[in-house]
Amino acid sequence: MYLNDASPGTAAVLVLFHQEHPSYSALMYLRFVWNDADDRLRSWIVRQYAAMLVHGPRAVTDSGT
Rank of each mutant, 00 (worst) to 15 (best):
M1S: 02
M1G: 09
M1L: 03
L3V: 02
N4V: 07
N4Y: 06
N4C: 06
N4T: 06
N4W: 04
N4A: 06
D5R: 05
D5H: 01
S7E: 04
S7T: 11
P8W: 01
P8Y: 03
G9M: 06
T10H: 01
T10R: 00
A12N: 10
A12K: 06
A12R: 08
V13E: 03
L14V: 06
L14N: 02
V15Q: 03
V15G: 01
V15A: 10
L16N: 14
L16Y: 04
L16Q: 15
F17P: 03
F17E: 06
F17A: 14
F17K: 11
F17T: 07
H18S: 11
H18V: 11
H18Q: 14
H18I: 11
Q19I: 10
Q19Y: 13
Q19C: 15
E20N: 14
H21P: 11
H21L: 15
H21N: 14
H21T: 09
S23N: 14
S23M: 06
S23I: 07
Y24Q: 10
S25I: 12
A26H: 12
L27H: 04
L27W: 08
L27F: 12
L27G: 05
M28S: 05
Y29Q: 10
L30E: 07
L30P: 00
L30M: 07
F32E: 05
V33Y: 00
W34S: 02
W34P: 05
N35T: 10
N35V: 06
N35R: 08
D36K: 08
D36W: 06
A37P: 04
A37C: 04
D38R: 01
D38P: 06
D39T: 08
D39Q: 10
R40G: 07
R40Y: 06
R40A: 09
L41C: 01
L41P: 00
L41Q: 01
L41A: 00
R42A: 00
S43G: 13
W44Y: 02
W44C: 00
W44E: 02
I45E: 03
I45L: 03
V46M: 13
V46Y: 05
V46A: 07
R47V: 13
R47I: 12
Q48L: 10
Y49C: 04
Y49I: 13
Y49M: 12
A50T: 15
A51T: 12
M52L: 09
M52T: 15
M52S: 12
V54F: 09
V54T: 11
H55W: 09
H55S: 14
G56A: 05
G56M: 09
P57C: 12
A59K: 10
A59H: 11
A59W: 04
V60E: 05
V60D: 04
V60G: 02
T61C: 08
T61W: 09
T61A: 13
T61V: 15
D62A: 09
S63Y: 06
S63V: 09
S63W: 07
T65D: 11
T65H: 12
